[in-house]
């Protein structure tokens, strides 16, 4: 099968690559752009580990072909950071609340909620659980992740955390 030359904009950087049309965006990100922070789990849209932002919106990179994302802005976990290249509020909260153990699901969760918390700055626990249902975590039991997201939302609203229940 003939490969096609495409340019993907990943984390504000244009990456040229030669790929077969069947190449999944997840594999193009990992193998061609050499950004391995995006993880590949189930490869059929269930686990959420491969979630990236396409034009600012969470999408499954295993359910998109790389050739389909030319001309779009792709954001991966590598671009998530806070001030002075430190942790973002969400990353810091996950660290403090022990919201990860093995870390396999974490990039997908962070990318999803970096976008979601911009859209909904004060989500209820039910809303957080509903969105988090798209990301499977086999270590934590989710409680600490939910606490971390609540804490991050509070910090991002400019409130003093600790009020998180």
């Amino acid at each position: 099968m003939k490969k096609v030359a495409i340019t993907l904009n990943i984390n504000n950087r244009d990456v040229d690559m030669l790929v077969e049309p069947r190449k999944l965006l997840s594999d193009a990100i990992r193998e061609d752009a050499r950004l391995t922070g995006t993880h590949v789990g189930c490869e059929h849209g269930v686990c959420g580990a491969c979630t990236v932002l396409v034009d600012g919106k969470p999408q499954r990179s295993c359910l998109t072909f790389a050739v389909q994302t030319q001309g779009k802005a792709i954001t991966t976990i590598e671009a998530v950071k806070g001030n002075n290249d430190g942790y973002s509020a969400l990353q810091q909260a996950l660290h403090e609340e022990h919201g990860l153990q093995c870390g396999f699901c974490t990039p997908g969760i962070i990318v999803t909620f970096e976008a979601y918390l911009k859209e909904n700055t004060n989500p209820t626990e039910d809303e957080i659980r509903d969105v988090l249902s798209g990301n499977l975590c086999r270590c934590t039991g989710y409680q600490n992740i939910i606490r971390a997201i609540q804490k991050a939302a509070a910090v991002m609203r400019g409130e003093t955390p600790g009020a998180a229940k």
Binding site: G45, V54, K57, P58, Q59, R60, T64, V131
Partner: peptide, 12 residues
């Protein structure tokens, strides 16, 4: 619509 898949699926 809210009950279809997950947020990342619904975006696409």
């Amino acid at each position: 619509a809210m009950r279809i898949g997950h947020l990342a699926i619904r975006n696409r």
